[in-house]
């Protein structure tokens, strides 16, 4: 049983690229899923039944499916549905973005609903429009409540990007496993993969804890 740990060092550039793609994928997904979540939350709170139901349906759909299945499904359905050949990256991004938007919408909805009704009434009583009331009174109070949860979602998303490796997107998990297949250095590469995720994920998890402490809502 001989190990060759230098294989990690020799493939460092590839691993770095993979890691970078993981970060890019996470960032892009959140960039889409935050506005996406807000839109879905506002739709859910709309007095128009059809709009509210559509949003609720979308959210339920993604809450109740394994993400890996969504990734596969998107990979096969998207080209047929849109008659366009998407890259694996785009497919993976779409699957992740839809999934996280659904979770974010619940976060935003809870945040918005946690604001007392009287706050909105006081704003309306001054003559503000609903939009003004939301902008001036609801959102500024909802954001500190929502931020720690969004941070947790970010960390989960960072880990979930590993799932798009199954459709050959070159993020960290795919890259590490590819190098493993090429070099047959199984223990070394898989341990390196775990170590890199750990090194990136651990501080993020600690940051989330700090955010939760800092923004602990005092009523």
């Amino acid at each position: 049983m001989n190990f060759d740990w230098t294989v990690i060092w020799r493939n460092a550039p590839s691993l770095a690229e993979g890691t970078l793609l993981t970060v890019v994928l996470t960032t892009l997904t959140m960039a889409i899923a935050i506005p996406g979540g807000i839109v879905l939350a506002l739709m859910r709170l709309s007095p128009i039944r059809a709009v509210s139901a559509a949003s609720a349906g979308f959210v339920e759909f993604f809450r109740n499916l394994p993400l890996i299945l969504v990734v596969y499904w998107a990979y096969y359905v998207m080209p047929v549905a849109f008659d366009v050949q998407f890259s694996a990256f785009t497919t993976g991004l779409a699957a992740l973005a839809f999934n996280v938007s659904a979770y974010n919408s619940e976060t935003f909805r809870a945040g918005i609903q946690s604001i007392r009704k009287g706050q909105v009434e006081a704003a309306l009583a001054l003559g503000m429009s609903r939009a003004q009331a939301v902008r001036e009174v609801v959102l500024p109070q909802a954001v500190p409540r929502v931020l720690p949860v969004l941070a947790s979602t970010w960390v989960s998303l960072f880990k979930d990007t590993s799932l798009v490796s199954v459709i050959a997107v070159g993020e960290l998990a795919y890259t590490a496993m590819r190098i493993r297949s090429q070099t047959f250095r199984v223990l070394e590469m898989l341990t390196a993969m775990a170590a890199i995720y750990w090194a990136l994920g651990y501080p993020q998890a600690k940051l989330v804890d700090w955010l939760h402490r800092k923004f602990r809502v005092m009523e």
Partner: peptide, 15 residues
Amino acid sequence: RQRMGMVFQNFELFP
């Protein structure tokens, strides 16, 4: 509403 003012039991100041 701009011509009427309302004061609430729970004050409802914007915290």
